[in-house]
Design a protein around this nucleic acid. Sequence first.
DNA 1: CTGACATACGTACCATGATACGGAGTCAAG
DNA 2: CTTGACTCCGTATCATGGTACGTATGTCAG
Lengths: 149, 149
Amino acid sequence: MSEMTIGKAARAAGVGVETIRFYERNGLIEQPPKPAFGGFRVYPAETVRRVRFIRQGQELGFSLRQIAELLSLKADPATDCSDVRRRAQAKLEEVDEKLARLTGIRAALEELIAACPGRGALRACSIMGALEGAEGAPMSPRHKVEKTR
Amino acid sequence: MSEMTIGKAARAAGVGVETIRFYERNGLIEQPPKPAFGGFRVYPAETVRRVRFIRQGQELGFSLRQIAELLSLKADPATDCSDVRRRAQAKLEEVDEKLARLTGIRAALEELIAACPGRGALRACSIMGALEGAEGAPMSPRHKVEKTR
DNA sequence: CTGACATACGTACCATGATACGGAGTCAAG
DNA sequence: CTTGACTCCGTATCATGGTACGTATGTCAG
């Protein structure tokens, strides 16, 4: 049962057929060659393993681009374990940053909710008040200032 | 100084001109009428306040869609403070879910990093091992199973 | 052999939050 | 009265991670 059509590979990996094709288009999976005479492409068990690898990576917060890097590391015999470890560590730091940001948001929301009377007219609502220009909390500049050309 | 062109409004609000137009297209900001004879649209100070409101909402993790809802609540005289509070509370729960997910990811990454020898061949690397089908950690089904038509 | 599926492939579309571009019109300073 | 900066408007593009559609072709069970 190690060779199969795309549909079976997809089911085995727990994804949709279109997802496999999407990964092929994006170089995460190699597309098996089409048989010389007629017929469907034949997918090896390796494809299923690769898809599972991708999904596991996503579970850990890696983007498809980063997972593609991990996959090419895997294919390279010169890769040392430390290469992989470094990436995991970088991702851990990223996760920590996100956690810090979310924790800040959480605190702000909780504070606003605690201060909100919970009933009555809107003008008394501290949450709305905070959303109105709170004058003093400078906004992070999401916009570009310099032109690139 | 309460009336201005789009560029000044954008600078006052700390965003780009295109961002204001984007918000207009998406119904977050009302586009002021074009003057009957020639000329540029005139933006009231209210526009700047609205943009600031939007950015503050984003800082708290609200999506533009959700912010649009908050804005229409704001416009509705029948809105009670509790309506706003409920939304903030829902957002808080969302944030808590994200925090829980990220915390799980963090723990998994940390565990993998700790278990990884840190040097040597890839086949000994526990991180790569975990990404290979770890057999036992069922993947969350990100894919659709049922067809909607 | 035939009908019901599956596959192959290219392309379009979804949401999210913008940013960029091109051409025409307008305004204001010098 | 010219020139440079700004506005207007529609459309296109970006990144992310897929999903959907249409048409042609292939496979297999009955």
